[in-house]
């Protein structure tokens, strides 16, 4: 549990055998790191940089991975228009530089014209796909997440640039507020220097137990690192806390109050 990613170690590991470097942004502990150096080193060695964005709302507040040299960006679209639904269905996002388009998996929609010259759209570049290329296809993907992708698009349209930026800053503002409040509690240490809407705290007790005890008090207090990394004693006191636009001051206060009692 450290405030920063050990980028130096990752940089040192990139060599001529490296095909790609995969980095989460923000990462699983909520940390935000500049990927430019990784992109440069990867490219020097003929490798690609793949950025993974599990919280697309963050991109309303922080630099786009493409600006930092990412070749491929994949994301989880759930937080924009798709319900939590206990894990699915969600919508995966996949973007890449133009030059990799013909290696992409799955369905692609392209613009064209009809017999009267009117603009229209078709599924295209399908010679990449399993129903045509079979074992030589770029993937075995057949089904897409059309309905979830539609919900994502509608939600993005309702937000627009202004809405997405405001939403991102609201998430961040509430998260900073929550982190500052929780930092006042004995037995809580905020690990992150920087974060978007999710940050790591270190408790003075096993976070798995604390999460269960909070749930008994009708508070869903975060995800324990003990659950995400079972058996790793160094992480068992880590607790990941996400704060979105749905959080209220009362909610943050209730979490702080109960955490204080349980950690005392």
């Amino acid at each position: 549990m450290t405030a920063n990613v050990d980028t130096e170690r990752l940089l040192a590991a990139i060599d001529g055998d490296t095909s790609c470097v995969v980095v989460q942004y923000p990462d699983i502990l909520g940390r935000i790191e500049d990927m430019s150096a990784l992109a440069a080193k990867a490219h020097e060695n003929g490798a690609l940089l793949i950025a993974v964005v599990t919280e697309p709302v963050a991109l309303g507040a922080i630099k786009a991975p493409g600006e930092m040299g990412a070749d491929i960006v994949v994301g989880e679209g759930q937080s924009i228009g798709v319900g939590l639904q206990f894990g699915g269905p969600y919508v995966g996002l996949f973007a890449c530089k133009q030059k990799f388009v013909r290696q992409m998996p799955g369905r692609l929609c392209g613009e064209t014209v009809d017999a009267e010259g009117k603009r229209g759209f078709v599924l295209t570049l399908s010679t990449r796909e399993q129903h045509i290329r079979r074992e030589k296809a770029t993937s075995n993907i057949c089904t897409n997440s059309g309905l979830c992708a539609l919900a994502f698009s509608v939600h993005m349209t309702l937000l627009g640039e202004k809405g997405l930026r405001d939403l991102a800053m609201l998430n961040h503002g509430l998260a900073v507020q929550a982190a500052e409040r929780l930092a006042q509690i004995d037995g809580v240490e905020i690990i992150n220097n920087n974060f978007f809407n999710e940050f790591l705290v270190k408790l003075n007790k096993s976070s798995r137990d604390i999460v269960r005890e909070l749930a008994d008090r009708k508070i869903l207090g975060g995800v324990s690192l003990g659950r995400l990394y079972p058996g790793d004693a160094a992480l068992e006191n880590g607790l990941l806390i996400a704060v979105t636009e749905l959080a209220t001051e009362e909610g943050i206060e209730a979490l702080a109050h109960n955490l204080k009692e349980l950690l005392a």
Binding site: R165, H172, E180, N194, E245
Partner: peptide, 21 residues
């Protein structure tokens, strides 16, 4: 243009690590 009406963000110092968009 936006179709949503969000609450104002709390006035706090950003902690985005200098990577503001």
């Amino acid at each position: 243009t936006t179709g949503v009406d969000l609450a104002d963000s709390p006035k706090v110092a950003a902690r985005l690590g200098g990577l503001e968009r």
